[in-house]
Nucleic acid binder design. Structure first.
Lengths: 137, 137
DNA sequence: ATGACTGCAAAGACTTTGCATCTTT
DNA sequence: AAAGATGCAAAGTCTTTGCAGTCAT
């Protein structure tokens, strides 16, 4: 028998928070953001629901940035840019690779590729300018 | 004045260990691997040298897999496959995207892209078969 | 001799988890 | 009432760091 899933106000709020931002949040961000509305929210609940949403496919992990795992409520295919200065994560929508690529790699290497991700690294606009300032001084 | 860099037997061994394997090791792996040869090696030294090698460009981080950061001593452009079953990391050499891509993205978004990485996720050969076994039972 | 590198252990940061309690069905 | 979801705090994992001692130059 599969485990039943029940409604929960906190869970709903957590998913809404993730889907409602483009910042690709961390657990801590979700916690801090919901704290005013839900003063009794616990960080453990955030973490448990992040696992839950990943298992059900509602959100995706983008990976660990500066020590914190970051999540994306948008599961449609797109690429990301990660700023090595401030850790900001941006969507690069236009960029998607051929989905057949996964199949080709699978055959070629005898593995089962399920998905791929294309990540760009560098400095965002803000950090770029901050760097220039520093060089001058 | 820039800081002088001195020779160290441990440092040399750490880099050799990373360059001498295709497993894309973690700090712990390096430590355990060198322990027999260097019984007085400390995990802190491994971590400090991993930072050092990244700063000097001798190695690259592949990201965090199952909670552990993984490194690659091969800094030539290539892609990776990460097994979500066992955490194995494989090289996919044939696959490299256009280097001009970084420039195009930079211009388009007003950011400074320095590099990109293409990562495939799925199950390796071994984990694929283990999964089949489990389904049967 | 200088200061870079290391071992050791403590501290830090992030995440997971056990248990009692509260909620949903 | 049954079992899922949560709060709280303790525990766990990986990584960083301070300090005294060691080693390369």
């Amino acid at each position: 028998m599969e485990r039943a899933i029940r409604y929960s106000k906190k869970r709903e709020a957590i998913l809404a928070a993730i889907r409602g931002t483009k910042c690709h949040p961390s657990a801590e961000w979700v916690y801090q953001t919901l704290k005013p509305e839900h003063p009794d929210l616990s960080l453990g609940t955030v973490y448990r629901n992040l696992v839950f949403f990943q298992e059900t496919g509602a959100i995706q992990s983008i990976g660990v940035v500066k020590g914190q795992e970051r999540f994306d409520g948008d599961t449609t295919p797109h690429s990301h840019f990660i700023c090595s200065g401030c850790g900001a994560v941006l969507d690069l929508d236009q960029l998607t690779l051929n989905k057949q690529l996964d199949e080709r790699i699978s055959d070629q290497y005898g593995i089962a590729v399920q998905r791929h991700e294309l990540i760009f690294h560098g400095l965002c606009q803000t950090c770029m300018h901050h760097n220039e300032e520093e060089i001058k001084s």
